[in-house]
């Protein structure tokens, strides 16, 4: 089965500004890809190109195995899009806005069910101009979902959502990917959302795709950074301070935070036991996406796009 999203050497410039340069990417069916990057990195432009709003200067967009430019309509039919700050026909009601979208998508659906899923059914008769930011975001999501898409392009979808709404949305999207095999391209500034939701993470900067990794591999345990729970932390710290394989020690009541020069937890355990300390537990520190992001952004080698 071909990947749902296949971007090949995608380029887009706005005058002298190279918004997207040579981006190549593949996303499998049912996969959730998080798109990260600082402002102006080219994330939105990439999404806009995939949504058919911006024409690439070069490169190729293949969605569902079909060339986007040549099969625009059939692709758009299978796609849902939520762009940052969704806009609506303000003089129309929530339901009418959704209906218009459904009509333009060429589908007949139970609008109330969709509104219910988005949690805005009670607002069906309200004008969109009266909606709060969070409710507008929910309506935007409902709109993106109205044609039951196989591919969702979501640009900052949780903007304005409260904690509960945020949580619900992420859970809902995960379920979509797992159960309905919906492919999701998820652009956000919120690292924890990407961490929670995405199978893979792609990081863009200055129009280039810097890296694209499995989220799980980025979030593995770091054996060089451990937290040791024990009694006599102060004493232990003094003993450990003289060792050349210990790089850094942070003493807290009942625990030590250590950074080892090598990932040798066994050596640490033996040393503490041999010196009479009773270890209640050793917890290796888990890496965060933010760590990885900062690391990648700081160490970004020139010209390295993959």
């Amino acid at each position: 089965m071909p990947p749902t999203i296949q971007l090949t050497k995608l380029c887009k410039s706005f005058g002298a500004n190279h918004a997207v340069m040579d981006v190549s990417l593949e996303v499998a069916r049912g996969e959730v890809l998080g798109l990260l990057g600082p402002n102006g990195a080219g994330k939105s432009t990439t999404l806009y190109m995939m949504a058919g709003l911006v024409r690439p200067n070069s490169g190729r967009i293949t969605l569902f195995g079909e060339h986007f430019q040549h099969n625009r309509l059939s692709i758009l039919k299978r796609m849902g899009v939520l762009l940052e700050r969704p806009v609506f026909y303000e003089h129309l009601t929530v339901e009418r806005n959704l209906k218009i979208h459904a009509q333009l998508s060429g589908v007949e659906v139970n609008l109330h069910r969709t509104l219910d899923l988005a949690g805005i059914l009670p607002l069906a008769d309200h004008r969109t101009s009266t909606l709060s930011l969070g409710m507008r975001q929910r309506l935007g999501l409902a709109r993106a979902m109205v044609n039951e898409p196989e591919l969702l392009l979501l640009d900052e979808p949780t903007n304005g959502l409260d904690v509960e709404g945020n949580h619900e949305l992420l859970r809902f999207l995960r379920r979509l990917a797992d159960e309905a095999k919906v492919t999701i391209l998820f652009s956000s500034h919120q690292m924890h959302e990407v961490e929670t939701l995405c199978d893979r993470v792609a990081i863009m900067n200055e129009g280039k795709l810097i890296t694209c990794e499995q989220t799980e591999s980025l979030l593995s345990y770091d054996q060089t950074q451990v937290e040791v729970l024990l009694e006599g932390a102060d004493r232990a710290a003094k003993k450990l301070a003289d060792l050349d394989w210990v790089a850094e020690i942070d003493v807290r009541p009942g625990r030590l935070r250590l950074r080892l020069k090598t990932a040798n937890v066994h050596q640490l355990t033996s040393f503490l036991v041999n010196n009479g300390f009773t270890i209640a537990g050793i917890i290796p520190r888990r890496r965060t996406l933010q760590d990885y992001f900062l690391k990648v952004m700081n160490k970004q080698p020139e010209g390295d796009a993959s």
């Binding site: 949504a51 058919g52 709003l53 625009r72 309509l73 059939s74 758009l76 039919k77 796609m79 899009v81 762009l83 700050r85 969704p86 806009v87 609506f88 026909y89 303000e90 979208h101 333009l104 998508s105 060429g106 709109r143």
Partner: peptide, 14 residues
């Protein structure tokens, strides 16, 4: 001006 054109143009219509 309102940006709704972006919503419309992502729908399956030329």
């Amino acid at each position: 001006a309102s940006g709704t054109i972006r919503m419309v143009l992502t729908r399956p219509i030329h």
